[in-house]
């Protein structure tokens, strides 16, 4: 069960990192994060239905599709949060909240209330690790999470572009003074975030189920992870994601699955009261 929690954590981390980057660099709290997951899941579902093959091979394609979508939507978000508005963070919140409702409503009218699922060749299989049996799909979701996280961290910490992104998150105006086109950095981050989140949607859709309202859950989880990690502090997301995964499975087994959200919010409330900058005290 401990393992189970850690396994779910892997995917949550991926969603959380994008969400955290987005806040760190652009000060956008993206309410539509769950809808990116939902749309990613549906995209995977449709690709499988019309073209066949295993959903796993569509991961890179979905990544690209959602990168493009993020890139296309970014100018609108930028307009909402930049310039003369009095409260850009609130504007971003309202704007993405609108996006989220739009996406949810759209999905509902196109696909209706039916709950769909994606089956992969890994579904129903399991791995035996000594005395433990681990569902293969969960394990691959975890591996995927770790892999994407590692790639993102490598990108952020080892490349010049990554340094620029971190610098922009720390002091946007200074980065701008040093010749960085901060608007382009924002577009890049948003597109990367949309791509990664959409791509995780396929795995989340394969692990659980797909329906128009599935996003809310992941929005809550992303919020939780990022609050725990400290807003905008990316490395904290990894620890927070694992804690969240563990918390969910413990509560699920010992107290009951329906108390999951209650437990989450209690922990979140506690963290905000005691250490509002996150458990590692490195948030903004």
């Amino acid at each position: 069960m401990l393992i189970d929690g850690l396994l779910i954590g892997g995917l949550i981390i991926v969603v959380g990192i994008g969400f955290s980057l987005c806040f760190g660099v652009m000060h956008i709290v993206d309410f539509a994060v769950g809808e990116w997951v939902m749309l990613g899941a549906y995209t995977g579902f449709i690709l499988v239905r019309y073209f066949g093959h295993d959903p796993m091979i569509y991961l890179p394609l979905v990544f690209l599709i959602f990168c493009a979508l993020g890139w296309a939507i970014y100018p609108l978000i930028y307009r909402a949060v930049s310039g003369k508005r009095h409260n850009p963070v609130l504007m971003g919140l309202v704007f993405t909240f609108g996006l989220s409702i739009l996406a949810k409503g759209g999905a509902l009218s196109v696909w209706g209330y039916h709950i769909q699922s994606i089956t992969t060749w890994l579904s129903g299989k399991s791995l035996a690790l000594g005395p433990l049996t681990i569902p293969a799909l969960r394990f691959s979701g975890f591996l995927f999470g770790i892999l994407i996280t590692l790639l993102l961290m490598l990108f952020l910490y080892k490349t010049r572009l990554g340094i620029t992104i971190r610098a922009t998150a720390q002091d946007r105006e200074m980065a701008n003074l040093l010749g960085t086109d901060v608007r382009k950095v924002g577009a890049l981050v948003y597109s990367l975030y949309a791509g990664v989140t959409g791509m995780s949607g396929i795995l989340i859709g394969a692990l659980f189920s797909i329906h128009a309202a599935m996003g809310v859950k992941y929005c809550t989880l992303a919020f939780f992870v990022v609050v725990l990690a400290g807003m905008g502090y990316v490395p904290g997301v990894i620890i927070a994601g694992l804690i969240l995964g563990l918390l969910q499975s413990f509560v699920g087994v010992y107290i009951g699955g329906r108390y999951n959200l209650v437990a989450l919010f209690m922990v979140m409330y506690g963290v905000l009261l005691i250490t509002p900058k996150g458990i590692l005290r490195r948030g903004i």
Partner: peptide
């Protein structure tokens, strides 16, 4: 600002503005 910087004007602002976590 980024275009001004690229033309060859470097502004070292008041308060130093070091990126603290870099």
């Amino acid at each position: 600002p980024h275009q001004v910087a690229r033309m060859g004007i470097a502004h070292v602002p008041e308060g130093r503005r070091i990126f603290p976590h870099l």
